[in-house]
Structures are given as structure tokens and as C-alpha cells.
Simulated scan of single mutants.
Amino acid sequence: MLIRHLLAGAAMALTATGALAQDDGEPLKVGFVYVGPIGDGGWTYEHEQARLALVEEYGDRIETVYQESVPEGADAERVLTQMALSGTDLIFTTSFGYMDPTINVAQKFPDVNFEHATGYKRADNVATYSSRFYEGRAVIGHVAGKMTETNKIGYIASFPIPEVIRGINAAYIAASEANPDVEFNIVWAYTWFDPAKEADAAQALIEQGADVILQHTDSTAPLAAAEQAGGVVGFGQASDMAEYKPSPRVSSIIDNWAPYYIERVGAAIDGTWESKDTWGGIDTGMVEIGEMTDAIPEDVRQEAQDLADSISSGEYHPFTGPLNYADGTEWLAEGETADDGTLLGMDFYVEGIDAEIPN
């Protein structure tokens, strides 16, 4: 897949002109394009919290605008074009499917700088950024493997892109190391945010015997379904989803974008912004593990914290061999760890996941 070449393309930091330095006293205009509503409780909610942190940090030195619930594709290109035409200096496009629209509009507006979340295409005026979500999924995967009583874990997946496949694999590896009898059932929702579809997916997995639900979709609907079913646990996705504590939400993966946004907008203000690729993890604070509630046994909480700490320190990598491909052929030998290029282009399941990846 083309995405396999991200690391090679990202190795060179392409430098922009620095033309965004605000020497005329006018505020820097910063735009955000969101794939879901700001009240989704997950992915978009956290990006919006980061925008609000920007306002608090820079005050009247910046002006921010945003548009929520923008579909990926032609609508995104239209929205980005309108933002650029309205005098926006720096635009954050916060979903993988905005990649080509971002590149297309950036070519038409070379004096506007863009930041694209989770993509792999860059240009002089387009930077990319993402988090190593798989690190957090390994931690909650361990908890899931320890907490399941049916040995069946359900996973609600959004789209079959490397980011999502990587998350499924990381969670499964950790869960199966904690519990060799664990099985993963995967439902593809083909949406980032659709509470009705997400609830249906959760219900289907629960009916198949899953007593732990993981998700790579953005609403709280799977947690609501788990709560209604009783005896089923889940985890906050992208945001803490704390309203479901202490159970069914027993922990969470939190995306903390604020420090990155503050840094990048500061660079735009002072004229040092440049195109680069950023992929932060637990160690940088871009990935956080939410409070582990008392619903998790104390020893499991400690094991999960130890795992998070070892990932953060670099002592442990979630993709460490021996690991095989789903067909049983060797992928990683004993002690070998996956390189970033393979992770960024991941299009396969590891051994033990009995499922097909949709085209």
C-alpha cells in the first residue's frame, strides 16, 4: 500500500516560508474542520477542547473558526476552500478522509498552512500529525483480556485503514498475552460517528457473547448499550467518557491535542512554522490512559499501569515478537519489534484473529 512509504516521505522536514508571522498586529486566524459534532463525547470533542485551550493560551492574538460534521470527500474540499478564501491563515483538518481534500486545497492556496490529522501526504504548506493510539489500545487490551469471563471481546471498528487495523492488532496481542483463551469478534461500522450504527454493532457483539466491548468509533452509544445489557464493560474512546464511570466504562484512551495545537499555533504566530510529521504517544502525553476504576481488580490495574509505564519509557513495544501473520507465517522473530513504516501501512491481522479485513 502507498501508506507504507510514509516514513520515507516524512523523513525530510519540508520548510514553509514562515509567512504567517503576525507582524501587522492582526490576529492569526486559525480554522478547524471536524468530522463529527463537537458534542460527540469522543474524537471531535477532544479536538474542540484543544481549540478552546488555544483561545485561553493566546487570547486576542488569534481568532478561531470551526465547522463541525463535515463529510469526508467533496464537501470537505468545499469547506476548506471557503475557509482559505475567508482569510484563514492556518487550518487543522482533523480526520483521515480529509487527506486528499487538504492536499488539493493547499495547492491552490500556497500562502495558507494546513495541519492534517492521521494522514501521510505532505507538502511545503501541509504538515501531518497523529498519536500512537495503538499504545493505549495495548493497555486497555490487557485489561479486557483479564476482565472477560466469556473469553469473547467485541471490537467495533470504523474503517479498514491502517490506523484501525493497527489498533485491533495491538489490543488483541495484549489481550491474548493476558488471556490465551480470548477471542476477538469484529464488526465494521463504516462510520466514525453514528450512534445508531454503533449501538447496533455493540448489541450484535453482546448477543454473540462478548462481555467486553472495545471501539474505534466516536460516540458513547456502545457504552450505553453495555450499560443496558448489564455485566458488560467498555472503555472511553478518544475522550474519557466519564459519565459512564465506574462501569461499564472502566478506563479510557484519551487524545490530548492541546499541547500540540498550542505549539504549532505559536510557531505560526512567530513565523517558525514548518511542514513536518509528528507521531506522539504515551511518552509525549498525546495518548493518555483515563482513570482505571475500582471495577477493575487492583492487581489488573497495577499490571495495566506497569504496561503503560514500560511503553512510555521505551522498555516495551506493543508489537514485539514472536508474532506471526494471520496465516501462521512468521512476521517478527523473538525480541524483534515492528518498524514504524510497517505499522503505518499495516494491512494485515496477526495470528489469532480469525476474520477478514474488508476491501
Rank of each mutant, 00 (worst) to 15 (best):
M1V: 14
H5G: 08
A8T: 14
G9T: 01
A10L: 04
M12E: 06
L14M: 11
A16K: 11
L20W: 02
D23F: 04
K29L: 00
V33A: 04
G36T: 13
D40H: 13
D40V: 10
G42H: 02
H47S: 11
Q49S: 13
A50Y: 00
L52D: 11
Y58H: 11
D60L: 02
R61K: 15
Q67S: 13
Q67C: 09
E68M: 11
G73M: 07
G73H: 10
E77V: 12
E77W: 11
T81F: 11
M83H: 10
T88A: 10
D89H: 12
G97H: 01
Y98S: 06
I103Y: 09
Q107H: 05
F114G: 06
H116T: 01
A117R: 09
T118V: 06
T118K: 00
D124K: 00
Y129G: 05
Y134D: 00
G136Y: 13
A138P: 15
I140G: 09
H142G: 09
V143I: 14
V143K: 05
A144R: 12
M147C: 13
T150L: 04
T150V: 06
N151T: 00
G154F: 04
G154L: 02
Y155H: 15
R166H: 05
I168R: 00
I168P: 14
Y172A: 06
A175V: 11
E183L: 10
N185W: 07
I186P: 14
A189K: 08
P195L: 01
A196R: 14
Q203F: 01
E207T: 14
L214R: 07
D218I: 09
P222I: 01
Q228G: 11
V232I: 15
F235N: 06
Q237W: 01
D240S: 12
M241R: 09
A242C: 03
E243K: 15
Y244Q: 02
S247E: 03
S251Q: 03
Y261K: 10
I262W: 00
R264E: 12
A267M: 14
A267D: 13
D270S: 14
G271R: 03
T272M: 05
D277I: 01
G280M: 01
I282W: 07
T293L: 04
E298H: 12
E298F: 12
A304W: 13
L307G: 05
L307E: 01
S310C: 08
I311W: 00
S313L: 06
G314M: 07
W331V: 07
A333T: 05
D340G: 09
G341E: 12
G341T: 13
L343R: 15
L344C: 10
D347M: 10
D347F: 05
